[in-house]
Design a protein around this nucleic acid. Structure first.
Length: 919
RNA sequence: GCGGAUAUGGCGUAAUUGGUAGCCGCGCUAGACUUAGGAUCUAGUGUCGUGAGACGUGGGGGUUCGAGUCCCUUUAUCCGCACCA
């Protein structure tokens, strides 16, 4: 019987659906295991062959774990709110909900064809009201909590208010936008509006005037991780800096915990490093500098307090709050000009223009607190308003940026660390002896830092401080297709809805663009207010809101009383294995950890980290094919002959090319312009050129899983995707080579059938020792490979196994082999499993165990080397002593030949490895 | 500039973790069976050499009886961050 993969796969996919084979429930008799894929954004283009790579890997692992006796949670859903559907809506008027629904349907069809073991009963869509109910709920919880640095966890805002009522800000150590100071009496005298403004300084979800990334192309603000090189990640529109009133999440409160938490996670080092860089912890000191003729003190942050004697000027950012106060009469004009210019520059210009030094003198002077020297204060955009205090003490001798600035404005450069020649360039190294440095002269840099920190604190000039690069996440988007904020305004003061008023449903609208006044689309909704007619917030939440806690919702997706029940959470706990792309390193994976830690503080979840182990699958790039058109003709020349002509390279659809050979008929039919194409062939074939490029429609290199499944079957697709190379490596998709794994499956199928009668027939004959050895070697290898996510080598192991078995039709060998193969190729194995006479799904079969007894060897073939060069091999029994081995070898006639009369200097014997004789 | 990763046949890759480099697959070559094959099967396939053999894991150096693997140095490619004080 032929291996009819189309029939088999369809049959089993239907069967699994009907029997609900992959439905999971809490089962306290079994250990749990949670395997999660990053849920997709259902885009209009559908899945290409690169998308399921991670899903296939996680599915293999899921099926394996299940056969090993775990109760495995393996859900799937859709990250359905987002920009593309909304951009499409603006262009076409088609409601994003409809577009999304269509795309979800298409995704589901494509996913189903690959044969995944998802529990679809637990499907979530972030745009479903029942789902975003809990996104809104979490937001309200953040709104009503602040971060207590003393207990190092989130605490109820009521407790903070109670403290204010009794003691004011005294003894408060809380994460805040700015440090406030007031008494209990002052608090009691505040109006309701003033109190709310004060509380916004502490809330974990809060509203503030803040410098934001404004993207006029998308008509919305963006978070830092949504901007790259001054352009929006989605769409590539330019981004400018602006001050706007926005909702933010105080993720910075959790910076240290997010940093520490990384140490206990089984994530790749590179991914952890990306998060560490993104958090960007730096330890240093806050120092106040007196300002000449003023009672103000300029606050700076420095990681090098040891270089304070080398400070020759100060620099503040153009956006610094004291810019105007520090500017003297005579400098007003130039300062104003500079600030105006700085405002106009986009983020992109500022980034690309880092080599040009620019700045302007304010006319003010600061006083160095250690040597009393009067130092000028400048304004320059190389100092960022958003980091530290927006002001720096400049040490040109030991900081390259300060050095460039000093050279440009001809400011003095005073070396304070021995080691470099500061007339040529700054000496930035953090080692050497301190010189010209008063009380710390002669100390090493490290000692100097310590000493200065003590001095700064004891003299009351400042204190030790830790700064983070991480910014609070801007949480509002001036967009329609997202979760509405459960917030209304009374007298411009934000009030939360009560939990029992949730969910606040996203109202339907018809025009999805911003209003003429530039307000968000929700401003078009007539009844967008509470029953008391207080207006709701017009912004919606960003994409990461919905994806931050979806892994919790899968545990208990239909619960309409809470995000997740205690029972479900305590059983499923956290994600044991998370598979997804590295592109979420600074976005989703940061926000999710923050969100989870917050819920952990409140006692809603029992694990502080959501994703224990994480595997980043590589990106699948496209492999484009080219034809070469002879210029000014409709002739096309094959790759090897193109040098003889003047040609033009044209992308050709990879689906009409096989093994780089063009299907010339299909090419003629591909597009009208090629209808009468002529070909200059080599060896009767048209060979195409190729290149690795991004997989995209415009390169005609998109390969759909559907096409592959039609031609080779889902099992072949699954195995080939794994065979392509190590999971974590990026690689181009190349359909060449798929025949190899397909042939393997066909061969495996044929072993179960009688050649002549074509009926299912396997023999009950006892397996030979050699066959059992091959089988158990393979079981061992496959087990190790799956645990190590080395799926490419496990496919090789299967192939080797079949090669070694040859024409073996024995049940004793083939039946365990079928189970072993079933996580990789579930359809064909289910079909065979049924023929073996089983009535249950193969996913309930026990994963084969290794019997080491079959693997025991009695002898070992030693490679014998002379001076490290292999000369011959000698088989010797196992377990004999090194002395006996030596005797055997010295007695060997080959040895005598290679020794050539000389005596060996040394004989190295590594049991079961090698024998090396040094002459 | 800082940080991370990678480099092995014509191609994708493998190597028991310091012990026979190139497993497995693609491609290619030859043969068999075929009316035919982009089907199937068999054999071969790192380079040079008729051969014995020599050379070979981006380049250079080192440690070692022995290095793809460890150390130093250098080059190239990819990724992340980037006036972060």
């Amino acid at each position: 019987m032929e291996y009819n993969f189309n029939r088999i796969e369809q049959k089993w996919q239907e069967c699994w659906r009907e029997r609900k084979t992959y439905k999971v429930e809490i089962d306290n008799n079994k250990p749990k295991f949670y395997v999660l894929d990053m849920f997709p954004y259902p885009s209009g283009a559908g899945l290409h062959v690169g998308h399921p790579l991670g899903y296939i890997a996680s599915d293999i692992y899921t099926r394996y774990k299940r056969q090993c006796g775990f109760n495995v949670l393996h859900p799937m859903g859709y990250d359905a709110f987002g920009l593309p559907a909304e951009q499409y809506a603006i262009q076409t008027g088609q409601h994003p909900a409809i577009t999304t629904e269509q795309n979800v349907k298409r995704y589901r069809e494509q996913l189903d064809k690959i044969g995944f073991s998802f529990d679809w009963n637990r499907e979530v869509k972030t745009c479903d009201t029942e789902y975003y109910h809990w996104t809104q709920w979490a937001f309200l919880e953040m709104f009503s909590h602040y971060y207590n640095n003393k207990t190092n966890k989130a605490d109820k805002i009521e407790n903070l208010i109670a403290h204010f009522e009794k003691y004011g800000t005294e003894n408060i150590d809380a994460a805040s936008t700015s440090e406030l100071s007031f008494t209990a009496k002052e608090w009691s005298e505040k109006s309701e509006k003033e109190r709310e403004e004060t509380l916004q300084n502490y809330r974990l979800a809060f509203r503030a005037d803040t410098m934001v990334n404004w993207c006029s192309g998308l008509g919305t603000v963006l978070a830092n991780d949504e901007v790259k090189d001054g352009l929006s990640v989605r769409g590539g529109y330019p981004v400018t800096q602006r001050t706007m009133k926005q909702w933010l999440l105080r993720v910075t409160a959790y910076a240290q915990r997010m940093l520490d938490g990384l140490n206990n996670l089984t994530w790749s080092e590179s991914l952890k490093e990306i998060q560490r860089n993104w958090i960007g912890r730096s330890q240093g000191a806050q120092v106040f500098f007196d300002i000449d003729d003023s009672d103000k003190k300029l606050e700076v942050f420095t990681t090098r307090p040891d270089t304070i004697y080398g400070v020759t000027f100060m620099v503040i950012a153009p956006e610094h709050q004291w810019v105007y106060e520090l500017t003297s009469e005579g400098n007003k004009e130039s300062v104003n000009n500079y600030i105006e210019q700085a405002k106009k520059r986009s983020e992109r210009e500022r980034i690309s223009d880092t080599k040009n030094v620019s700045g302007v003198f304010t006319g003010s002077f600061a006083i160095n607190p250690f040597n009393g020297v009067r130092i000028p204060i400048f304004i320059s955009d190389y100092v960022l308003a958003g980091y530290g205090t927006g002001a720096i003490m400049a040490v040109p001798a030991h900081d390259s940026r300060d050095w460039a600035f000093a050279k440009h404005f001809e400011l003095p450069v005073i070396p304070v660390v021995e080691g470099g020649d500061v007339t040529k360039e700054s000496y930035d190294a953090k080692s050497g002896k301190l010189i010209n440095s008063g009380i710390i002269t002669g100390l090493e840099v490290k000692e100097g830092v310590e000493k200065m920190l003590e001095e700064i604190e004891s003299r009351g000039l400042g204190k030790k401080q830790i700064n983070y690069r991480l910014r609070d996440a801007i949480f509002s988007r001036q967009r329609y297709w997202g979760e509405p904020f459960p917030i209304y305004y009374k007298d411009d003061v934000a009030y939360p809805l009560r939990a029992d008023q949730l969910p606040l449903e996203l109202p339907a609208i018809e025009n999805f663009g911003p209003t003429e006044q530039g307000e968000p689309p929700l401003a078009r909704v007539k009844n967008w207010h509470t029953t008391e007619e207080y207006p709701f917030e017009l912004s919606t939440m960003p994409g990461f809101a919905g994806s931050s806690a979806y892994y919790l919702r899968y545990m208990d997706p239909k619960n309409n009383k809470e995000l997740v029940s205690k029972e479900a959470n305590e059983y499923w706990r956290d994600v044991d294995l998370y598979v997804g792309g590295i592109e979420h390193a600074t976005g989703h994976l940061m926000y999710s950890r923050f969100w989870n830690m917050f819920l952990y503080d409140l006692g809603y979840v029992c694990e502080s980290e959501p994703f224990k182990k994480l595997v980043n699958q590589g990106m699948i790039q496209g492999r484009s094919n080219f034809v070469y058109r002879v210029k000014n003709s409709n002739k096309y020349v094959s790759l090897g002959l193109r040098d003889e002509y003047d040609t033009q390279e044209i992308h050709v659809d990879v689906n009409i090319v096989k093994n780089d050979i063009l299907d010339t008929e299909a090419f003629r039919n591909w597009r009208a312009e090629f209808n009468d194409a002529e070909f200059i062939l080599e060896d009767g074939k048209y060979i195409c050129g190729w290149a690795v490029e991004k997989m995209s429609k415009s390169m005609y290199n998109v390969v759909n899983p559907d096409t592959i499944i039609e031609n080779y079957g889902a099992d072949t697709l699954r195995m080939y995707e794994m065979f392509l190379g190590p999971l974590e490596q990026s690689k181009p998709w190349d359909t060449n080579g798929i025949d190899g794994v397909h042939k393997f499956l066909r061969k495996f199928w044929r072993l179960h059938f009688d050649r002549t009668s074509e009926s299912f027939r396997i023999s009950d004959e006892k397996a030979t020792a050699q066959e059992l050895k091959t089988l158990h070697k393979t079981i061992k290898k496959i087990r190790e490979d799956i645990e190590n996510f080395s799926f490419n080598t496990s496919i090789s192991a299967f192939m080797i196994c079949l090669n070694e078995l040859g024409d073996c039709h024995k049940r004793e060998v083939l039946e365990p082999l079928t189970t072993l193969l079933s996580p990789f190729a579930p359809h064909i194995c289910e079909e065979l499993w049924e023929m073996y006479g089983s009535s249950v799904s193969i996913s309930d079969a026990k994963f084969p165990e290794v019997n080491e007894a079959y693997l025991v060897e009695s002898s070992f073939e030693y490679p014998v080397s002379f001076n490290g060069k292999l000369r011959f091999k000698r088989e010797l029994p196992l377990g004999i002593s090194n002395k006996e081995i030596e005797e055997h070898i010295l007695a060997d006639e080959n040895t005598a030949k290679y020794l050539d009369g000389k005596a060996p200097k040394k004989i190295i014997i590594v049991p079961n490895k090698i024998i090396n004789i040094v002459i």
